[in-house]
């Protein structure tokens, strides 16, 4: 192995300093703009800071955290977020795999359709929220009209607490399936052909090939796409804020929306910081669980060692 090591990263006279110099701006920015606020927020979470009552703050230890554990509204929003994330990510994953298989047939014209499908992920999330809110209007909305054409009774969409969560999940699926589709399609189209030819000669059915060849070979790509989506879905704010602001009846009160309310409606910044930290820990746990279950680190390491 020394040969590859030396070919990749040579040690040359006087160059250690260059590397440090090149790293310096990034390290400074990350420390000043990244690490410091983070630690500051950790400190705030141990105080009762609330600027509406003046700038004075008391150190109150873990009281915010103790309170958070009894805050039903917070855990409700965590639950909503988990449901939202799980549903949205799994639906868009399935859709993306199906779309990738379909578009991998590469009939003439599919390239253009594929490009059109990518557009939703590029639309500003606030604009996505606005557009869907227009389309989902119960009385004037085009969705109820279209459903009426094929005989489906009109729905209240985001206006009713029973369908609101489903509605925002639909919007998230619409916006982010293209993202997963883009990645998984790239994965599918770069798969080697020979295993499939061998399987065809062995008499495998298309379904068999999909289960035994396509899916296992796609696993790294699927895992990476899913992980990126989980992290992003967990902090979804823009679309939900524009469509429902967490309502009706807190049916779509995801954690970002709830935190925004605590922080910038009630200005309970000490408590808000504590909740932020709890959220961060929950995200980490979810991600670590996912990483553990899928062997993500091993996939990454394999890629690095190629």
């Amino acid at each position: 192995m020394p040969k590859t090591q030396s070919a990749d990263k040579a040690q040359r006279a006087g160059e250690g300093k260059i590397a440090t110099l090149l790293m310096a701006p990034t390290v400074i920015v990350m420390t000043v703009v990244g690490l410091y606020p983070l630690l500051h927020s950790l400190y705030l979470s141990l105080t009762n800071y609330n600027p509406t009552y003046g700038d004075a703050k008391e150190f109150i230890g873990l009281a915010n955290y103790v309170y958070a554990f009894e805050d039903g509204q917070f855990w409700h929003s965590i639950l909503i977020t988990l449901i939202f994330t799980a549903a949205s990510v799994s639906i868009s994953l399935v859709l993306a795999v199906l779309l990738s298989l379909l578009f991998n047939l590469r009939f003439p014209g599919f390239m253009i359709l594929r490009t059109v499908i990518l557009i939703p992920m590029l639309i500003t999330p606030v604009a996505v929220g606005i557009t869907w809110r227009i389309m989902m209007m119960p009385d004037l909305g085009v969705l109820n009209y279209l459903m009426g054409l094929i005989g489906i009774p009109p729905a209240l969409w985001a206006g009713s607490s029973s369908t609101a969560l489903l509605s925002v999940i639909l919007v998230d699926v619409w916006q982010w399936t293209p993202f997963m589709f883009l990645i998984i399609y790239a994965g599918i189209s770069s798969l080697p052909k020979t295993p499939f030819e061998a399987a065809a000669i062995d008499g495998a059915s298309p379904w068999r090939m999909f289960v035994s060849l396509t899916l296992p070979m796609l696993k790294p790509v699927i895992v990476i796409a899913t992980l990126l989506r989980i992290v992003d879905a967990f902090r979804t704010y823009d679309t939900i804020y524009t469509i429902t602001r967490g309502g009706p009846d807190f049916a779509t009160d995801v954690v970002s929306v709830y935190l925004q309310r605590v922080n910038f409606r009630f200005f309970d910044l000490g408590y808000g910081s504590a909740l932020s930290w709890l959220t961060l820990i929950i995200v980490l746990v979810v991600v670590l669980l996912f990483v553990r279950l899928t062997g993500f680190m091993k996939l990454v390491a394999d890629k690095e060692n190629r």
Binding site: M1, K3, S6, A7, A10, R12, A13
Partner: peptide, 18 residues
């Protein structure tokens, strides 16, 4: 054979390795 140090020696002559 590979890993015997021949390339590293050459790279030290070239100045690509200190």
């Amino acid at each position: 054979s590979s890993g015997c140090g021949k390339t590293t020696t050459l790279r030290m002559i070239a100045g690509l390795e200190t």
